[in-house]
């Protein structure tokens, strides 16, 4: 079991529905977000390329945030999801420094917070909030070890990339190009 997500950059329109859905579902404080949209513009008119990416925690297999956490609050659970136990986190900021994707933030209550792949929803057999609301169906989530899962099927016939592979973190977010 290894959860992963594929994001279809060709289909994403950058509507930010996933951002709002996540903020609502996970009670993210105002001014903060666990997922966000990046617009990447390359070239100049008339040769312009735009890539839209819905980004979040990459739930890295070799996660630097888990490695540097001094208390073990950051840990990996079954399915490869990187989680933070709030009452073990001392708020030292080491994991925020260690993340090449700047996916973590310091919650106003003190602990460090980030995307959980909506673990509480997965437990109930539901999909993540961001995937559920995406109007263009550009987000694909599921078990990478299962060849028939939504994410595996999405990755099968398309080219994809991961972000900052040179950081050596083995991210589990795949961007279909």
């Amino acid at each position: 079991m290894r959860y992963g997500m594929a994001i279809d950059t060709a289909k994403c329109v950058g509507c930010s529905d996933c951002v709002v859905a996540c903020q609502t579902e996970n009670n993210v404080p105002i001014g903060y977000c666990r997922d966000w949209i990046v617009e990447n513009v390359n070239g100049s008119y008339p040769n312009v390329e735009i890539e839209l990416r819905s980004e979040r925690c990459n739930h890295c297999e070799n996660s630097p945030c888990v490695r540097c956490c001094p208390t073990g609050a950051s840990h990996i659970i079954d399915g490869g999801i990187v989680m933070v136990t709030h009452n073990e986190c001392i708020g030292c900021g080491a994991c925020i420094q260690s993340c090449p994707y700047d996916a973590r933030y310091s919650h106003p209550d003190g602990y460090v917070d980030k995307c959980t792949f909506c673990h509480h929803r997965l437990e109930k057999g539901q999909n993540t909030a961001c995937v559920e609301v995406c109007p263009t169906r550009c987000l694909h989530f599921g078990d990478l070890d299962d060849p028939y899962s939504d994410v595996s099927k999405a990755l099968k016939n398309r080219t994809w990339k991961v972000l900052a592979p040179e950081a050596g973190t083995k991210p589990q977010l795949f961007f279909l190009t």
């Binding site: 001014g31 966000w36 617009e39 513009v41 390359n42």
Partner: peptide, 12 residues
């Protein structure tokens, strides 16, 4: 030109 911006208005 190469430009990158957060269009979800990320300003944590």
């Amino acid at each position: 030109m190469k430009e990158e911006l957060f269009i979800s208005g990320r300003d944590i």
